[in-house]
Structures are given as structure tokens and as C-alpha cells.
Amino acid sequence: MSLEVNSTEQVIKIAAITLKGRLDAFEAPALRKICDDYISNEFSHFVFDLTDVAMLDSAGLAVLVSVLKRARLKNGDVRLVWPREEAASRILKLTKFDQVFVSIEKSEIVPRGF
């Protein structure tokens, strides 16, 4: 056999998280806990599906930013499926995080997300 095969296995762990309802200061700690668990389990890529998030405030945003920061340290990233509601997307525009988070279509989530 003359074929030389050198293979490296690279496992990219992607967490796709779908959120519904109000992502505010009250819900943020629960989401943070979930994300912390993923990060401890070597997840470096995150997709947050915000399609059905009715309202997003700065506490919710802070969780997303925190996840992005830690994902980048592991050469990962965070992508967002844009919320349908203005009440949720408003803050992303106001804070200009719409230019930091890469947005994807819902259909792109898995497996073509990355």
C-alpha cells in the first residue's frame, strides 16, 4: 500500500442552545449556569437560537458576551440566530454587538453552522 494516510482527529464541540421567552436579569443566571457547564465540558462553539426570545436586556446580553469571551480563548466562537422580536434585537443594535456576533440563519445551525 503506497497510500500514506496521516489523520488527525479534531473534535469541535458545538452547543446549539435554543431560547424562548424573556432573557432578562431573572433568567440570565440559569443560562449562565448551563453555558458554564458546556464550557467545562470543552465546548468551544455556541449557537444561540434567539428566534423566539421576546425580550433581551443587558443582563441577558452579558451572558452572551461572557460566553463569547471564553469561547474565543478556546479558539471558538458564538453565533446567533437573530431574534424575530424588535424588543430582543434592539439591545444588540444599541450596543453594536450586532457587529461582533456573527449571525446565521436558523437553517444553518447544525451541521453547517461552522
Binding site: L61, L68, L94, T95, K96, Q99, V100
Partner: peptide
């Protein structure tokens, strides 16, 4: 408003109200 590239995890609230 904090610069988003700094990935600050807080300090947005009052700036949002102001805008």
C-alpha cells in the same frame, strides 16, 4: 456605551437608557 470589542460584561444598562 462600552466599546463592544472590549467584550465588557456590564456597564450597558444606564447607557441604554440614555440612548
Amino acid at each position: 456605551m462600552p466599546n463592544p470589542e472590549d467584550l465588557a460584561e456590564g456597564g450597558y444598562g444606564m447607557a441604554i437608557i440614555r440612548s
